[in-house]
Amino acid sequence: MASKHKTSSRTGNWRKWRGVLGFGLTGVATLISLGALFSILGYLIHQGIGAINWNFIVREPAAVGEAGGGIAPSLLGTLILVSISMVVGIPLGIGVGIYLSEIAGGTRFASVARIAINTFIGVPSIIMGIFVYFILVKPTNTFSAIAGGLALGIIMIPIIARTTEDVLRLVPKSIREAGLAIGAPKWRVTFDLVLPAARAGVITGGILAVARVAGETAPLILTALGNEYYPTSLFKPIDEITLRILKYARGPYDVWHQQAYGAALILVFGVALGSLLLRLSTRDHDALSR
């Protein structure tokens, strides 16, 4: 111990410099991280803003390689696909979340279900595309909006399930007990007392999941396929904004590239809006734990 205090000034100097160097490196790393963010966002805005105008939002795509035209069918298709995914993902996801938090407790089955949920969050989305391809696209012999929405919905389930479980657990146990103590059956305690108390958090989880699936591309290649027209039927291929970005990014035309940036900007803006809402509403659910 005592010898430690007798460090020579040289090692003392080295220690100081090591700190400066170490923290300097972390600072550089932070600048790199932020630089990546700003270069992507900056480039996107710089290139995309020029493509966005009224026609871009309300028109169908122009003939191949020609200027003008818009991405209206993709926007509409995105809306439809996300709606279908919500119909699938929200009830199932919330149901599983309720099960894990309110019913299962610490049983062995619950921990298996919990591991399954957490594992499935990490399964690549293209795998869900393969699943839906085989159970829906191949049997019906057509890519379709339903198939795309189903794939996105399945991706949503574990995300919503986990956030729901987490926020329901933040609701104080005393609220549940108080409900049970006046003779409320469990289901009413869950739906009348616990879910409303966790409302902000559940909504947050929903937004997070919707934002996540709205940006999914890979499973849609296997299920929704994409096309050039306004959607006419849920049982036909449907276009979606990320499929459109993919197509335009890979095309050889400058117009397409510009429109890809425009579409990407709209997508990022939409999703960032979701993140902002998320941030605002998580403030509420922090307050809830008290």
Partner: peptide
């Protein structure tokens, strides 16, 4: 059980108003 708990009410140490 719910009917029992209506006959036998309970008040807890920390007040637990519902979020209503």
């Amino acid at each position: 059980i719910s009917e029992l708990r209506r006959s036998v009410g309970m008040v807890f140490q920390r007040s637990t108003p519902f979020p209503k």
